[in-house]
């Protein structure tokens, strides 16, 4: 994709971002005025009208849209109605947690998928392959929220091995190594849930591409050369299998983000996903737009990275 195509895609996403929240029934102040449940801040009709006018929500849609765009150009993501703070600042404070989830889950699902995928491919049609295949397919078919809840019930609530919610123990005052340990301890279950459900796709892809690759002429050449088994498998076969995998992983990133939203909510993990749910609940348009924008932007960036990485991995398209 050219830079121009990326730009067009971004513009479409921005537009959808803007209109989508506004298509939901209700407005921010209606919710703030009572139905949210937890917040009992009440607004009178006058106050509501005042705020609507104050935030410019009484203006025509087109005007609001252009104000939003020009704000973005200045790097201004808007002001959260609910948190009464800069959207950019709120998002920035939550991003690290989501980033931790996504990278850790991508890493572990890749590790698991590649390892089991190659294991199956080397033993294609043998019982080891069949058992692995069955287990992986079962795990990847369980919806991530169900798997999350199961993990919570068994390992957190039941066995008490992991905390039930959050990203760190509140008010513990941990620093340094103790803090890191605490963070990892909290992240463990959500990451496992995400990784397990994501590994299936990678496993199938690796298993299939490797099976195709094993029948290629160059694999016979490698075997004829009397190379070590490790070199044949990992240097000659797996490097070729990496090509479709890169595409797959980045294409999956959108799905991964969806999974993160669910998982963060189950484990009450303070990332963007949890923030998004809160923002949807209170119809905080600027915050929602901000979160969508960041997510869309990161997915697009990942695609761009994939293009570049593919070029690096596959010499055949380097010249194009």
């Amino acid at each position: 994709m050219t830079i121009f195509e990326y730009f067009i895609t971004l513009m479409i996403i921005l537009t959808i971002n803007f209109f989508l929240p506004r298509l939901m029934p209700g407005d921010p102040f209606l919710h703030l005025s009572g139905e949210a449940g937890l917040e009992f801040v009440t607004f009178t009709a006058e106050q509501r009208e005042y705020f609507i006018a104050h935030y410019g929500l009484d203006r025509p849609m087109s005007e609001q849209y252009f104000r939003y765009l020009s704000g973005l150009l200045r790097g201004d993501l808007g002001f959260s109605y609910y948190y009464k703070a800069d959207v950019a600042a709120i998002i920035l404070s939550r991003i690290p947690w989501t980033l931790l989830m996504v990278t850790a889950a991508t890493f572990f699902s890749l590790l698991l998928g590649i390892f089991l995928g190659s294991f199956s491919a080397w033993r294609r049609e043998a019982w080891q392959d069949k058992v692995t295949y069955l287990l992986i397919v079962i795990f990847s078919e369980i919806p991530v929220f169900l798997l999350g809840i199961m993990l919570l019930i068994v390992f957190a609530a039941g066995l008490g091995l992991f905390p039930l919610s959050g990203a760190i123990t509140p008010f513990s005052g941990y620093t340094g190594f103790a803090l890191t340990k605490d963070i990892l301890h909290h992240a463990m279950l959500p990451v496992i849930a995400l990784s397990l459900t994501r590994a299936g796709g990678i496993y199938l892809l690796v298993r299939n591409s490797l099976t195709t690759i094993l029948a290629k002429d160059y694999m016979r050449t490698a075997r004829a050369k009397g190379l070590s088994e490790g070199r044949i498998r990992y240097r000659h076969a797996l490097k070729n299998a990496m090509l479709p995998l890169v595409t797959r992983v980045t294409m999956q990133l959108g799905g991964m983000v969806g999974g993160v939203v669910l998982v963060e909510n189950i484990f009450a993990y303070p990332g963007l996903g949890r923030l998004m749910q809160e923002a949807v609940f209170v119809r905080d348009y600027p915050l929602l737009q901000g979160i969508f924008l960041v997510l869309a932007f990161s997915v697009l960036t990942a695609n761009l990275l994939a293009d570049l990485l593919y070029r690096f991995l596959d010499p055949r398209i380097r010249e194009i």
Binding site: D217, A222, R223, A224, K225, G226, N240, L243, P315, R316
Partner: peptide
């Protein structure tokens, strides 16, 4: 044990085809 013979003592010039060499290794 066969690996000891392969290439070191008995080598083969394979039939030329597009995929006879690994596409991602130089």
């Amino acid at each position: 044990k066969r690996k000891a013979y392969r290439w070191k003592r008995i080598a083969m010039v394979f039939q030329n085809s597009l995929e006879i060499l690994n596409p991602v290794l130089n």
